[in-house]
Nucleic acid binder design. Structure first.
Lengths: 226, 226
DNA sequence: AAAATAGTGTCTGTTAGACATTATGGC
DNA sequence: GCCATAATGTCTAACAGACACTATTTT
C-alpha cells in the first residue's frame, strides 16, 4: 500500500492498558494482524465506527473487548497524537486512552497474539506507541501520588500492605508504613469490609474497599520527585 | 445543510485562549461566520489542513493568527472531545488546545468579530464549548498551583507583586505575601533583570524574568482546595 | 514627614519521615 | 512459645500560614 495523503486525517484510538503482574508494571501489547507493521507488537487500537460507537470510551472498550477479552476497566483519556509522519499512510490522528486493570481482570492465559510486557525495557514499537506508553506511565506516576488511582490495579477488596506495595510500584520508591497509613486514614477513602485476608500469612491483614471510584487528593502520598 | 453521518469523523481543533484583563480571567470568543451556528459567539476553531499543517499546534497557531492576529503564545493540548451529538453535522472529533497569553500580546483593539469574555458568567455556547472552557479553567487552576504557568499571563519582565496577583487570580484566593515570596525564592525559577518597575508607584518594585519556559513544582503555591 | 507600596523577620501549629514498639495469628 | 507479618506510637525537622515589622520611593 502506497503512501497517501488524506483530505481529512484518519482517526483512530489507541489503548495503553497497564496492569501489575508479579510486582511489575506491564503494558498489554497485541500483534498486528494487518499492514502497516503487520506482525509487529503494538498497542491495541482501531478505527472509530461512527455507526456503532456513542463516544470514544466506547470505541476503546469495543477494541479491548475484541482484542483482549476484557470488561469493566478504569479508562481515562490520555492525549491525542497527530501529524503527517506517525502513520505511513499519511496525516493521522490518534486519541490515546489510559486503561488500568487488576491482573485478574484479564484472561489467565493470554492468546499468542497478546502479551503483557514490562513497561521498562520495551522493544521498539511502531507509530508513536513508545512515546504513548511513556506518557501513560508518566501520567500514572504523577497522578498516582495525588489520588487513589493505583487502587485500580487491585481487586475490589484488598489489604493495606497490598495497597502500599501498589503505590510503591507506581511511584517507584519505598514508602514509610506509618506515614502511609496515617495519610490513608486521614483521607478516608477506604472502609473496612470486616473480613481478613485469606492469603497464608503470619498475621492476616484486614480487608478494605474503596468508598468511591477515584479520589483526587491535595496532599501527596510520596513520590515528590524532588 | 442537512444532518449527515460520516464514515469517518470530521476532525477540527478548538482554541481556548485565556488571558487576564483588568484582573479578570477572560476567554477569547469569535463570532461564527458560517453554519452551523453562524452569528453565534464560539471558540475559535477550524479544520486541520493536512497539506499545510505539520502538526496540531501549527493548526491552532494558524487559526489564532487568522482569527485573532496573534503570535507566540503558550500552547498546551487540553483534551479531545468527540461524539455523534456535539456537532449537528454528525460524528465529530475536536482536539482542544489551551492557550495563555498576556493581554498585550493581543491587538489593543479587537475587531467586532472578536471579544474577550469573563470566564465566569458566559452565555450559552454552541457545541461543547462551554464545557471546554470549564475544563480549561480547571486545568489552569490545578496546574497553576504547581507550576510557573500563571507567568504566561505576564510580559517578559514583571514584578513580584504582579506575579502574586496573577497567581491569586488563577487560584481564586488571596495568598500570603511572605510565604509566596519564600516559595518563589526557594523554587528559583526567576532571575532579577536589575531594573525596577516604571509604573507610577510609591515604591517601584524590582523586575524579574523567568529562567525557563514553564516549571512544574512538587510543592504548591496555594490553592489546595481542601 | 506622611503615605503608600515593597520587602523581611518571627512565631506557631501542622505534617511528613524515621524508627521503635506493640499486637495478632500460624505453626 | 516462637516467628512473621500487621498495626500503632513517639520523636524530630521541615514548612506553611499568620502577622508584625522594616525599607524605599513619591508627593
Amino acid at each position: 500500500m502506497a503512501t497517501k495523503t488524506f483530505r481529512q486525517p484518519v482517526v483512530t484510538v489507541d489503548a495503553v492498558l497497564l496492569t501489575i503482574e508479579e510486582d511489575i508494571l506491564k503494558v498489554l501489547l497485541h500483534r498486528r494482524q494487518q499492514d502497516p507493521f503487520a506482525g509487529r507488537w503494538a498497542l491495541p487500537g482501531g478505527f472509530v465506527h461512527p455507526d456503532e460507537d456513542r463516544d470514544l470510551p466506547q470505541t476503546v472498550s469495543r477494541i479491548l473487548r475484541d482484542k483482549a477479552g476484557l470488561a469493566g476497566v478504569y479508562l481515562e483519556q490520555l492525549r491525542t497524537y497527530a501529524g503527517p509522519d506517525r502513520d505511513p499512510r499519511g496525516w493521522s490522528v490518534s486519541i490515546a486512552y489510559l486503561a488500568l486493570v487488576p491482573r485478574d481482570a484479564l484472561p489467565e492465559e493470554l492468546d499468542e497474539r497478546t502479551s503483557l510486557h514490562p513497561v521498562s525495557g520495551l522493544p521498539d514499537l511502531p507509530f508513536d506507541h513508545g512515546r504513548q506508553i511513556a506518557d501513560a506511565a508518566a501520567r500514572l506516576r504523577g497522578k498516582g501520588a495525588y489520588s487513589s488511582l493505583p487502587a485500580a490495579f487491585l481487586p475490589e477488596s484488598f489489604t493495606l500492605p497490598m495497597l502500599q506495595r501498589t503505590y510503591e510500584i507506581v511511584l517507584g520508591e519505598a514508602l514509610d508504613q506509618s506515614s502511609f497509613r496515617r495519610k490513608i486514614a486521614d483521607l478516608g477513602f477506604l472502609e473496612e469490609t470486616g473480613e481478613k485476608s485469606k492469603a497464608a500469612s503470619a498475621r492476616p491483614a484486614r480487608l478494605y474497599r474503596l468508598t468511591e471510584p477515584v479520589r483526587i487528593f491535595n496532599r501527596s502520598l510520596g513520590g515528590n520527585q524532588a
